[in-house]
Design a protein around this nucleic acid. Structure first.
Lengths: 146, 146
DNA sequence: TCCAAATATATCGTGATACGATAGAAAATT
DNA sequence: AATTTTCTATCGTATCACGATATATTTGGA
């Protein structure tokens, strides 16, 4: 029953360090989003909508799927983003059940600033994150080979 | 004012894909933690405590710092973990203000299972995450050089 | 020594988030 | 035409994180 073996302390440490790197990036993201007047999850929704393939309809269900949340959680996020003036709902024309979500100019401005800031942060912290991930995977391969 | 330039659609897409990879991993983590009876943040706390350098005291403040949360948020997490039987508080002996946090055998068992599962998931999805990160950084370097 | 400042933990109230359960409208299917 | 499916929305609940505040202990100066 090798699958039940415990991990070494080094492996726990590597996993902890990987999660710490991710958490540090997410913390940066939370703080930066709030500085621009929105919450981190609202930023994620803006980015997901703006980064959608052009042939993909920006429906609530599609967005929820890309954020790995239930559709009604996306509804609530969109309620708050609409109130903040960052997005607008457009009732579907062909399929009247659908609601298409578009960034307003204000929403685009916020996203642009956040994207630039995040790219800069990733230039700084990305290599450390990659290193931490590689440590986990290296350990993993070593164990698998033993 | 080059810093104010907008990003290209490709750069937004790369950022969105990177965040999607992270979010997918975190979603896996949330679901798996819940399957083992704890919340994702509680899992993070267990891992942070267990992955602590041996010379570091497992105080609430230290743990909060590693999770990038306020100390009273850590207090609340620890309340819930204590109720779940995964950790125990030990009042400090030298400094009686401190509380040292230790995993119970039940907590260690949960963490071990989660660590093994997460390592397996990272073997599967880690390369895609690294690829997405590299795409962001490549784009970034290209823009900086232009 | 004694007392103010700093440190460590805890409590309370609030807001954002995500969920399950449920509902209603529109489209698709039978 | 009636049923089922799909899409969005609402309601109640739990976790999480925070700011403000409180309490206990230790530290550092007067």
């Amino acid at each position: 029953m090798e699958a039940d073996n415990d991990l070494s302390y080094d492996q726990y440490r590597d996993l902890a360090e990987f999660r710490r790197q991710i958490r540090q990036f997410l913390y940066f993201s939370e703080v930066t989003a709030k500085e621009h007047g929105i919450e981190a999850q609202q930023h994620q929704l803006l980015l997901a909508v703006h980064g959608l393939p052009e042939e993909t309809k920006p429906t609530i269900r599609e967005i929820a799927s890309r954020l790995f949340i239930q559709h009604h959680s996306a509804v609530e996020l969109i309620d708050r983003l609409e109130k903040a003036g960052a997005i607008a709902r457009h009732p579907g024309t062909q399929d009247k059940r659908e609601v298409w979500v578009r960034l307003t100019p204000a929403g685009r401005a916020i996203l642009r600033k956040l994207a630039l800031t995040h790219r800069t942060e990733l230039e700084r912290s990305g290599p450390e994150l990659a290193k931490a991930l590689n440590s986990v995977l290296r350990q993993s391969r070593r164990t698998a080979a033993s």
